[in-house]
Design a protein around this nucleic acid. Sequence first.
DNA 1: GAGGTAGGCGAAGTTACTTCA
DNA 2: GATGAAGTAACTTCGCCTACC
Length: 321
Amino acid sequence: MASGKVYGASNMTVLLQNDRLPCSSEVLESLWVHPADPSFQGSKSMVDFENASSNPDGAFFERLEKEENIDVDFDSCFHQPGKKRRLTSEQVQFLERNFEVENKLEPERKVQLAKELGLQPRQVAIWFQNRRARFKTKQLERDYGTLKASFDRLKSDYDNLFHENEKLKQEVNSLKERLSARDKEKENSNCDKPSSPDKDQAPDVISNAVSENGSKVATMICKQEDANSAKSDVFDSDSPHYTDGNHSTSFLEPAHSSHAFEPDQSDFSQDEEDNLSDKLLTQLPCLPKAEDCYYDHDDPPHNSCHFGLPVEDQTFCFWPY
DNA sequence: GAGGTAGGCGAAGTTACTTCA
DNA sequence: GATGAAGTAACTTCGCCTACC
């Protein structure tokens, strides 16, 4: 008999742990019937010590003392608070099946289960309490995993967009430098030839620049849109969608916060951006006007990824309109 | 009907023990 | 065999609800 085997009775449980018990383990071992045993029948699976002890003449324990020639210390045998009495795998499986059906325990069901398992109703209640606690812990772990995966995905998206944004800023700076160099060159030539101003010169520069980088500029516009949508994906604890009772889905919903991702303007002022953008836009008929980039909130384009953000919330707006 | 009390239950946290690597 | 970590039965405390007086 392995130590720690469970001996349950309707009014007491006994832990056999080698030499810890003052009464004979062999005696108790012989009294125990494993639930898998053919003789296992409901509450008969365990010794009914309550009935035994309630025997009018105390025959059970008298017999125990006689046959084993031992001094049965009832209290020390059966009232050992804090001693662990592992449930058998059959008992656990039975309880698990019942837990799947209903994780709460009505009094009648508790008594019924206790009867069928040969346990005390209190043991059944405690098992259900602990099982609910374990279930909750597992559920929290699952929720955490889901949230973390979502966070990692968003963070990865943000990092990609951030780096792309940095690259595009560098390209804009480079275009600016070329433009100012060309302007200077033009001024010098104007000094030499005051009549014959070439009004199309600057646009040509832009056009050339655009022809070289046109696809990238267009990409820039789209990416700004993406940035806005990515921004709106960030968790917002103030979001009305987040409630204790319904947090399982809200974390995937867009948060309408305008300050989650602030554009980095440390190395490229908004005024500079605006000026350049004005120049670019006035010379780029191929690009849509800014107002055309935004849509009526009630009728967003199908391919849009704005999540219905109001225009004023779109902090990545690249040019004035 | 309002207020006090006892009992039951569940959640959360803890303790003590078992099992296993 | 000793040991630490993980699992778990049982306990404690607290809050809430209900029945009863």
